[in-house]
């Protein structure tokens, strides 16, 4: 991952997605909700990139842009396919996007609403094959059974409807559907947050096994830091449409360089009765992406706020202390922030 010369599989350059706010009788355009505001990062083959942030910070909007479900307002999404050709998804036509979608698929957060309740498992998993390869039920049966086994489902259950499955099993069905076309990259939108804790671990293990077996790359979204820590090689922290810090997962967790990351890490529960952790409690709620404060978007809640913070917007800069660690804080180098003491601290949980 420190190999800079390697060509990234996916590269986001200054991506923005604004939603217009319209008001009044004549639907005048009065403002924008800046859901994603200037995000850049790269993803390499076989890598898992974790994306952390509280609800509403633009994580889901970001990946919907990558799969072509939303059109970005500006910026580039460069995807390099197996043949080494690079396409800009932000500007691709429908035909190109349809071709790219065979390589990039998405896993949804809610395993209940993401499966059509009126279709059998066979039809759900077989639908990508039907739509893209014209394979009917009979032609796709073997492949559907194979996919079900791959994700740990009993292929004999293929005539059942989603309501006959538990949340974890449904999520496996969703994964099998996403794998049907042999994608290179999976975008997982909080795939475990709707599940019981015991099932979460099984689904995470499934993701890791699939990555090994199928050489997949992941962008893995979660608001749960331990999940991201468990699965990802590199991670980024998002706050109201901006990436505020990104680094290798271990470095990010042990020595954060942004006050927001520190606050998030301090909230990770540590399952030992004798250890009392000092929590950084933030003031107020997340900023309204329609009315961002001037300067650093985090400054109204930041415990280390200085005068400069309310006037100048901090761009994402590499910190001097270590390479490949980027932070969007004016004082990233001077603040001494507390992370997790060791990675094992919570990995042991």
């Amino acid at each position: 991952m420190s190999d800079n010369v390697r060509q990234p599989m996916l590269e986001l350059i200054n991506l923005r997605k604004y939603f217009p706010v319209k008001k009044g009788f004549f639907r005048r355009h009065v403002a924008d909700v800046k859901a994603v505001d200037g995000v850049s990062f790269s993803l390499y083959e076989g890598e898992t990139f974790g994306l952390v942030g509280e609800s509403g910070c633009g994580k889901t909007t970001l990946i919907k842009n990558i799969v072509g479900a939303l059109r970005p307002t500006s910026g580039q999404i460069l995807f390099t396919d197996a043949g080494g050709q690079t396409h800009d998804i932000a500007r691709a036509d429908r035909e190109r996007i349809e071709a790219i979608r065979r390589d990039i698929q998405m896993i949804f957060q809610d395993p209940f609403s993401s499966l059509n309740p009126r279709m059998t498992v066979q039809d759900i998993i077989g639908e990508p094959l039907l739509v893209n390869e014209g394979k009917g039920r009979r032609a796709s049966r073997a492949r559907v059974a194979e996919l079900m086994e791959l994700v740990g489902l009993n292929p004999e259950l293929l005539r059942r409807y989603p309501h006959a499955f538990s949340g974890g099993q449904r999520q496996r069905i969703g994964i099998a559907r996403a794998l049907a076309l042999d994608p290179k990259l999976l975008l997982a939108d909080e795939p475990t947050s709707a599940l019981d804790v015991s099932v979460q671990a099984q689904i995470l293990n499934l993701f890791m096994r699939l990555q090994r077996e199928l050489n997949l790359s992941y962008i893995f979204i979660s608001h749960d830091l331990t999940v991201v820590q468990h699965i990802s090689d590199r991670a980024a922290v998002m706050y109201v449409g901006h990436i505020v810090e990104t680094a290798e997962t271990e470095r990010l967790y042990v020595s954060p360089k942004h006050p927001y990351t520190e606050a998030l890490l301090s909230a990770v529960p540590y399952p030992h009765p004798d250890v009392k952790k000092k929590k950084v409690v933030l003031k107020g709620g997340a900023a309204d992406p329609q009315l961002l404060p001037a300067g650093c978007p985090f400054h109204p809640r930041c415990p280390y706020v200085e005068a400069l913070c309310s006037t100048r917007f901090p761009s994402l800069e590499e910190v001097t202390e270590s390479q490949q660690h980027w932070s969007a804080c004016h004082y990233a180098d001077s603040l001494s922030l507390r992370g997790l003491d060791t990675l094992e601290e919570s990995a042991g949980s």
């Binding site: 799969v67 479900a69 349809e98 979608r101 065979r102 698929q105 998405m106 949804f108 957060q109 809610d110 609403s113 993401s114 499966l115 059509n116 639908e127 990508p128 739509v131 893209n132 969703g174 559907r177 049907a180 076309l181």
Partner: peptide, 12 residues
């Protein structure tokens, strides 16, 4: 609805 978006994403 998620499953409708999902159908779009598999090029339906």
């Amino acid at each position: 609805e998620d499953f409708v978006v999902a159908a779009r994403l598999i090029n339906a």
